[in-house]
């Protein structure tokens, strides 16, 4: 589809906004979940809850980097996210005992409609597609 609105770099405007919006929702969701888990029952499943916190931090970094047009930061954050969801998703299937409570990335993000699995792929595609635009 021909785009006519892309005059600003990276995700500062246009379709990138939609991506940033979804990332924002996930930063919020994962962050809130991590805070609740860590503050109310850290001892029950420290690994899972620390992973939740890590996931939340990654989402926050990715959101800010995409919104501000920090391409390199966004690339690193989104890559970490993709690796995270694949590794944690696989581990949670192979070794369920290690993950007594859900994290955002458990079973490839099933609790979140698999959006955590799709989102980094979309993010990387988006970064690639806008790679020719001048970066800030």
């Amino acid at each position: 589809m021909a785009e006519t609105t892309e005059e600003r770099p990276a995700a500062a405007g246009g379709p990138g906004r939609a991506l940033v919006a979804v990332y924002g929702v996930f930063a919020l969701a994962a962050g809130a979940r991590a805070v609740v888990q860590l503050s109310t029952r850290f001892a029950e499943a420290p690994v899972a809850y620390l992973l939740s916190a890590l996931a939340a931090a990654v989402y926050v970094v990715a959101t800010v980097a995409l919104a501000r047009g920090g391409r390199r930061t966004a690339l690193v954050a989104i890559s970490v996210e993709l690796v995270g969801v694949l590794v944690v998703g696989t581990l949670s299937l192979l070794e369920p005992a290690a993950f007594p409570d859900e994290t955002v990335w458990s079973t490839y993000g099933r609790g979140y409609l698999f959006i955590p699995l799709v989102l980094p792929v979309l993010g990387l595609l988006f970064l690639r597609r806008t790679a020719h635009a001048p970066s800030r």
């Binding site: 405007g13 246009g14 906004r17 939609a18 919006a21 929702v25």
Partner: peptide, 27 residues
């Protein structure tokens, strides 16, 4: 969420404002 969605959508001068609002509504 709806408040954040509307505030953001109103400052978005492109047709993607609707999508931003849609994401908030979907959430």
């Amino acid at each position: 969420l709806p408040v954040a969605g509307v505030l953001w959508a109103r400052t978005e001068p492109t047709r993607w404002a609707g999508t931003v609002l849609a994401v908030a509504a979907g959430a």
